[in-house]
Design a protein around this nucleic acid. Structure first.
Length: 260
DNA sequence: ATGGTGGCACCGCCA
């Protein structure tokens, strides 16, 4: 019996977060670490720092915004970037296969405001992702979708549902778009292990003073798995340590373990 | 309480 440990972390610039990421990898040794908002073009990605820690790293990013990467102990198979390996989506989706498990790491468009074209683009992105799953995979395949998905799916996933209702990450329209993807055949692995548990957040806005102490969080980072694989999950938890170490990073690390 | 700050690149935008 083999274990598979996977984590996801919105790093808000991989280069300025290396002093958090590399020690975290050395302490936790996940098989796979998915990163979002690397904010670096491929030619300048700090590959050597990962390799010195014993990790291979695959990345797809542009100059300034977005950017995704996967660090892994093993060699990635079937590596692709973007929906069709074409720009301009390359900096939000990266996919690879490890131990027979397809891992899709995404940074979903945030959407700015509900009445903006960027929110329309966000909705189209979710619809395109659903079609991407349909076209390329079966819910019977062992598959993980993880990353900063920019959606808090339920009231317990935000600290103040009344006030935050209508935010681009917390409204009926985005819930519907997200539910439509889950309906294809994905299980929220964190919720499986923490059903109905409130105050479990992966994001705390660093612009708000005392945001962690005051519990002003959101659960917008996720690890989802196809049902067969989800049955093999043994744990899924939020690691606050990287968030507490860092003033200028909002996100925690979400980590899941599977017994294959 | 409808703000705040930090990252990257550019002369502001994004979160």
């Amino acid at each position: 019996m083999k274990t598979f440990k996977i984590a996801t972390y919105n790093v808000n610039s991989v280069r300025s977060r290396l002093h958090v990421i590399i020690p975290w990898l050395n302490e936790n040794r996940p098989d796979v670490l998915c990163m979002q908002e690397t904010k670096v073009e491929d030619g300048k990605f700090p590959r050597t720092e990962f390799e010195n820690a014993g990790y291979q790293v695959s990345f797809s990013g542009g100059k300034k915004d977005n950017g995704v990467a996967i660090a892994s102990l093993a060699e990635p198979a079937e590596l692709t970037c973007g929906f069709e390996d074409d720009p301009p989506d390359r900096d939000r989706l990266i996919r690879a296969k490890f131990s027979g498990i397809t891992v899709i790491n995404t940074y979903v468009p945030q959407g700015y405001k509900m009445d903006s074209p960027r929110f329309e683009h966000k909705l189209k992105w979710y619809a395109r992702f659903r079609k991407y799953l349909e076209d390329n995979f079966s819910p019977k395949d062992p598959l993980i979708w993880c990353g900063d998905l920019n959606v808090a799916p339920e009231s317990i996933d935000v600290h103040n549902p009344k006030r935050l209702l209508g935010h681009v990450d917390f409204n009926p329209v985005v819930w519907e778009a997200f539910a439509n993807i889950k309906e294809w055949g994905l299980v929220d692995v964190f919720r499986k292990h923490h059903p109905g548990e409130p105050n479990q957040y992966t994001f705390f806005d660093y612009r708000i003073p005392g945001t962690v102490e005051r519990g002003l969080g959101w659960r917008v980072d996720h690890i989802l798995a196809t049902p067969g694989l989800a049955r093999k999950s043994r744990d899924c938890r939020i690691d606050m340590k990287p968030r507490l170490m860092e003033k200028s990073s909002d996100h925690t690390v979400l980590i899941a373990e599977f017994k294959l």
